[in-house]
Simulated assay, not measured.
Amino acid sequence: MIQQIYPSTPHPFRYELNKDMHFAAAHYVPSEQAGDCAKLHGHTYFANVTIVGNELDESGFLVNFSLIKKLVHDRFDHSLLNGHAEFADEHNPERYPTTENVARTLCEMIQDHLNGMANKPRCVQVFLRETPTSYVVYRPAAGGVYGG
């Protein structure tokens, strides 16, 4: 993994976990305004997921790193993003597999899983690099407001 300094988001939690991973995936953006990105092409995405919380689970983890990798890498690696249900609506720009929408979707998917955990961890940031010069940071709690 390339060493990277990620932007941090302030939060009131005792623990902060960060997981780096990568996955290779193809996509296209079904919009005339997407230019060359409207053509099928691929990337090696680099992701950093930030999860926070105040309590550890029964194994002493905030979240097991392998769980995060399973949720992201195992689902999207070597796939066509447009073929996943989350990105299959070619008439809704919020479901196009742009870097912004992929980052948001990763955060939502991870949080959906975390919601079932007794220690209630929160996904507060997804950093997603699409190319060496382009990345998106997604934070679900705009303005730093965190749910309980």
Rank of each mutant, 00 (worst) to 15 (best):
A34M: 11
A34I: 10
A34Q: 11
G35W: 04
D36Q: 09
C37W: 00
C37T: 05
A38W: 02
A38S: 15
L40S: 14
H41R: 05
G42M: 06
H43R: 04
H43P: 12
Y45Q: 12
N48T: 14
N48D: 14
V49T: 09
V49I: 15
I51G: 05
V52G: 08
V52P: 07
G53F: 03
D57N: 13
D57E: 09
E58C: 13
E58P: 10
E58L: 12
S59Q: 10
G60D: 04
G60W: 00
L62S: 08
L62H: 05
V63M: 10
N64P: 06
N64D: 15
N64I: 07
S66H: 05
L67M: 15
K69E: 12
K69L: 12
K69G: 11
K70A: 13
K70Q: 15
K70C: 11
L71Y: 01
H73C: 11
H73K: 10
D74Q: 08
D74A: 08
R75W: 04
F76Q: 04
D77G: 06
D77T: 01
D77P: 02
H78E: 05
H78M: 03
S79A: 01
S79C: 01
L81Q: 00
L81C: 05
L81E: 09
N82T: 05
G83S: 03
G83K: 00
A85V: 08
E86V: 05
E86I: 04
F87I: 07
F87N: 09
A88F: 02
E90C: 09
H91L: 13
N92F: 04
P93K: 11
P93Q: 10
P93R: 10
P93M: 13
E94N: 15
R95K: 15
Y96F: 14
Y96K: 06
T99L: 11
V102K: 02
A103N: 12
R104D: 13
R104C: 13
R104Q: 15
T105G: 08
L106G: 04
L106Q: 05
L106V: 07
L106H: 00
L106P: 03
C107H: 01
E108Q: 07
Q111W: 00
D112Q: 11
H113F: 09
N115Q: 12
M117I: 13
A118I: 11
A118L: 12
A118E: 15
K120N: 14
P121C: 02
C123F: 00
V124K: 02
L128Y: 06
L128R: 06
R129D: 10
E130M: 07
E130R: 03
E130W: 01
T131D: 09
T131F: 02
P132Y: 00
T133W: 02
T133Q: 13
T133H: 10
Y135A: 14
V136T: 13
V137P: 11
Y138A: 12
